[in-house]
Nucleic acid binder design. Structure first.
Ligand code: ZN
Ligand code: ZN
Ligand code: ZN
Ligand code: ZN
Lengths: 172, 172
DNA sequence: TGTTAAATGCTATATTATAAATTCTGCTCT
DNA sequence: AGAGCAGAATTTATAATATAGCATTTAACA
């Protein structure tokens, strides 16, 4: 019995094509509606981000974009990322300097991010109770919120089950 | 009546010397107790961080340390910062790539950070209700927490009052 | 005092991000 | 059609943040 040390892809356990096609359809629809351009570069960058549920680094995106877009430079990626963030189609993960697709870009939302140290996947949660507790506490402090970055690092459900499955070989 | 555009220092409104001396005394005491060395460099870096309640950048610290420590290089600062973070004497503000003194390093704590866009000061809050709501939500998700970065950006109480004081010249 | 581990010095480089000027591209107005 | 315009992309350069690896110094302590 060997311990699985291959980079995990829980995405393989679900139909990730659905995630991608849904995300791209939503993006196309929202941009159309808003009269902003989801240009080929922006579209491609969004697809690259959606290749997995992991947060992805700007320069990693650049490397992956280059074969398709010979002229791609850092500014190419960062301008695309700025656009996608402005449109709420992706989130920036501050504590990783990385970017992840947003699953609920079609409506206004606040979210917290659960970031797995093991598989590196990021799960977005609306956590209403957390947000209202937060509103209350900041109000007490007389503080007016403009934006939030709530990023929780740890081990996700899938990874926990995985280590239990593997004969108690817990190496986390 | 002119609008105050000078960088704000709410620290001037309280006896900040007390903040500093308390923080340094606590640091010295904790390091002693733990058998770790608060070396002159580490001590100085901590003092530099405590010059205000703003989050301060690593290279800004470096510039301020150089006159006192001619050999100071990036690694000098980053090593001191690593030590101070390990000892819980400062916090890293992920969304700013900056560092701020911790006011409650003497006991275990979780905190959220209120970061003012106007005066740039950072207030640390324990926000028990937020933390327990968070525990509950992550538990639901089957996620095991290792660490948290909860960073709220907005306008602090002092800055709000300030703009009200100034004849409704609210420019935020 | 000799040994050792921690801390610092030193040099180089990796990684992340932005600035500024120019060119391209698609659109509108005449 | 052609001038004018605005958004997007290119290009070049550089700023800002952070780490690696190895040499040297310092401090703890047996
Ligand atoms: Zn998926
Ligand atoms: Zn995981
Ligand atoms: Zn103070
Ligand atoms: Zn303020």
């Amino acid at each position: 019995m060997t311990i699985n040390t291959i980079p995990l892809q829980h995405a393989l356990k679900h139909n990730h094509n659905e995630c991608v096609s849904e995300a791209m359809a939503t993006a196309e629809h929202l941009c159309m509606e808003r009269g902003v351009q989801l240009t080929p570069i922006r579209h491609k960058v969004l697809e690259l981000i959606w290749e997995s549920h992991k947060a992805v680094k700007a320069y990693e995106l650049l490397d992956r974009l280059k074969p398709l877009q010979k002229a791609a430079k850092p500014a190419t990626i960062y301008r695309a990322l700025d656009f996608l963030i402005d449109q709420g189609l992706i989130h920036r993960v501050e504590s990783l300097n990385a970017f992840v697709g947003c699953r609920c870009s079609s409506y206004q939302h606040e979210q917290l991010l659960l970031i797995c140290k093991h598989c590196e996947e990021v799960e977005e949660r609306s956590a209403k109770e957390v947000m209202s507790a937060l509103s209350e506490d900041t109000q007490k402090a007389g503080f007016t919120i403009h934006s939030k970055a709530i990023e929780i690092h740890g081990i996700c459900k899938n990874c926990q089950n995985l280590t239990i499955d593997q004969n108690q070989s817990v190496i986390l």
